[in-house]
Design a protein around this nucleic acid. Sequence first.
DNA 1: ACCTGAACACCGTTCAAGT
DNA 2: ACCTGAACACCGTTCAAGT
Lengths: 211, 211
Amino acid sequence: MPRRMPKSHDELRLDAIAASRAMVEADGFSSVTVRRVADRIGCSIGSIYNLFRDLDDLIIHVCAGTIDTAFEVMSADGLPDEPHERVHAMGRRYHDFVLANKNLWFMLFEHRAHDGRDLPPWYAERVGKLLAYVHANVAPALEKVPPDSRIDAVNTLWAGVHGIVTLGAQGKLGIVTAASAADCVRLMIDMVLAGHDQPHVSFDGNGFGRL
Amino acid sequence: MPRRMPKSHDELRLDAIAASRAMVEADGFSSVTVRRVADRIGCSIGSIYNLFRDLDDLIIHVCAGTIDTAFEVMSADGLPDEPHERVHAMGRRYHDFVLANKNLWFMLFEHRAHDGRDLPPWYAERVGKLLAYVHANVAPALEKVPPDSRIDAVNTLWAGVHGIVTLGAQGKLGIVTAASAADCVRLMIDMVLAGHDQPHVSFDGNGFGRL
DNA sequence: ACCTGAACACCGTTCAAGT
DNA sequence: ACCTGAACACCGTTCAAGT
């Protein structure tokens, strides 16, 4: 194989996305510029616009990769069968993932398309896949909630977990708090599930000792 | 009074902050540029740097104003006396405020100082004042929680409310949900407070105390 | 002492000119 | 057909020159 084979369109696209992702991880998403990406992957400024519609489009592709990674992490093997424990495991995975990928994750929420352009369908699909997985695995722990309200209950619980994880990762979880974000996530889940499921709340801490 | 009296340093500062706030409200915080502010308040680019250390410093002053407004809204007269109802009223006020001031509120969380420069003490003080007010008014509804854990319980509940309100304002509260963010906030508060009214659910038993 | 705006080093995006 | 980079209209920040 020749040493420096000219890269194909698709290879260059993947290079640009990978380079951008590395920049986001290292210095946040505002450090990604067309000029720097072009420089990093060894092409001209103008060529970036042959690979992507504009910078927004490139950024969205990095975001899509982040969502895919999140899905893989969340859906990896090893989730407990017991519904309550499963929610705790999901919360823990979400927390750990966001903490390990702060800049990439924040970009999902902070990035706004320039005009009112809405997200492409293939992107919305991937978000939907991740959300559907969360719903499928959280809903069983809320089976006492009437089916009509269950979607809202899951959304409420998970939005709560998201709030804790986000504020925690931003260092804004209360002024002075002894409890870590991971502890608060656990507490949130326990509080919500307890509110809905009086009889048997197993709070022995079992299954979570692998902290 | 003369028609066009030259403005004092302090007047110009307030003008710049007000102009910036109006820009954020209208078009988001990335629409605030030194050139546009200078143009709007009728001074030169360079003069902005006589009023503020840099653009970050100006932005922080807008943020401080947002926090002050939030405090005024949250602490206005008319909160119910009953602790649970009071938490609901707080949640509702928070939700309404964020919805009515999306761009200003998002700026608080999305704005990052350029280098690792940390926020000035007078700014942290104002954030602390708002958080302290929330704590003082939410804590009574969690009086069954042991005092040692109560701060963490309030943080957990309020971070949850924050998550719902934030995702709701971003239009990201679930893919398709009938319930509005306001309904989810109500549900969250009910679930958490209900979880604590169950006698057998205590903070000591759930492993939360270990830190 | 402060105001000014040209200058500097960036930025996203476009497009005529090359291959 | 695609790659190139100068050009355009911006950006934050600085600073010599004015008052």
